[in-house]
Computed example of a mutant assay.
Amino acid sequence: MKRIFAFGRKRKGQPPLASASAPRPAGACDLRQKALDKLHRAAACDDLAQVRQGLKKRGVDGRDKAETPLHLACANGLADVVTYLIENKCELNLVDNGNRWPLMKAVQCQQEKCVAILLEHGADPDLADADGNSAVHLPVISPNTSAAGLLLEHNTGIDAQNKEGCAPLILAVSEHQGEIVEFLLNKGADVHVPLAQQTPLMTAASGGELNLIKVLLHYGADVSHKDTNGWTAEDYAVVHGYSR
């Protein structure tokens, strides 16, 4: 699911306004348990004995209509089930019918323990969904610095851009998530990462986000940087009524 964040409409002679494509909010997990077979229901409900029994009849990566047992266990934070499925050689990077893999499910649903287990066993943190969002885009919305930290410890691309050209830092600024903005910058995010030639500082200035502006300046944001139309962050602020 994709949302577009914009800061008003572009007027003639004014700087262009960037938008940010956001992943689904964390916690958006639809399980449809009544429609699941025994194996998948067991994986969703922490019934490890039934999971063991189910694996004798079905493959470890068997799907219901949408997801594998690993997807369901990750969405529900069932660390023991996740570990058991991994021990039985399940595939870590299969996608569901929404093009989301188990790691994305775990991050979406804020299941940090499952995130840690998946990463420790080699789940790929840099896979992208249909909108180009990688797992590191997801903790920005929550916000969830713990999950973000786990991903960054496993060398995920901190400046990864989705199909809209939106990196996590731009998304954090667009969502007014000051804690995540500072967290990403402290972890080495590029303070000048662009979205349609608009820097994070320009995005913050467009919304009059004084606290975010201070954080970005503290981490070296260049106030003299110009977009392709010659506009600086100060121009963005003045045009949108934030001359102070």
Score class of each variant (00 low, 15 high):
2 K>A: 14
4 I>Y: 05
7 F>S: 05
9 R>I: 04
12 K>A: 03
16 P>N: 05
19 S>V: 11
21 S>V: 12
21 S>C: 10
23 P>G: 14
24 R>M: 12
25 P>C: 09
27 G>K: 10
28 A>M: 14
29 C>G: 01
30 D>V: 15
34 K>S: 10
34 K>P: 02
34 K>Y: 00
36 L>Q: 06
38 K>I: 08
42 A>W: 01
42 A>G: 13
44 A>K: 03
45 C>R: 12
50 Q>K: 11
51 V>Y: 10
56 K>C: 11
57 K>S: 06
59 G>H: 12
61 D>L: 09
62 G>A: 15
64 D>E: 09
65 K>Q: 14
65 K>V: 13
71 H>V: 03
74 C>L: 08
80 D>T: 13
80 D>A: 13
80 D>N: 11
87 E>P: 06
88 N>A: 04
90 C>Q: 05
92 L>S: 03
92 L>R: 03
95 V>N: 14
100 R>D: 13
101 W>M: 04
104 M>K: 11
114 C>N: 12
123 A>M: 06
125 P>K: 03
130 A>L: 07
131 D>I: 02
133 N>E: 08
135 A>D: 14
136 V>H: 10
138 L>I: 15
139 P>H: 02
142 S>K: 02
143 P>I: 00
146 S>W: 03
147 A>D: 06
149 G>T: 04
151 L>K: 05
154 H>N: 10
163 K>T: 13
166 C>T: 15
171 L>G: 00
174 S>Q: 02
175 E>S: 07
176 H>Q: 08
176 H>W: 00
179 E>V: 01
183 F>P: 06
184 L>A: 13
186 N>Y: 07
192 H>E: 13
198 Q>A: 15
198 Q>S: 15
199 T>D: 07
200 P>S: 11
204 A>R: 01
204 A>F: 01
205 A>R: 07
206 S>Y: 01
208 G>T: 09
209 E>G: 02
218 H>D: 14
221 A>I: 06
221 A>V: 05
223 V>L: 06
224 S>T: 09
230 G>E: 03
231 W>R: 05
231 W>A: 09
239 V>P: 00
239 V>F: 05
241 G>C: 04
243 S>Y: 06
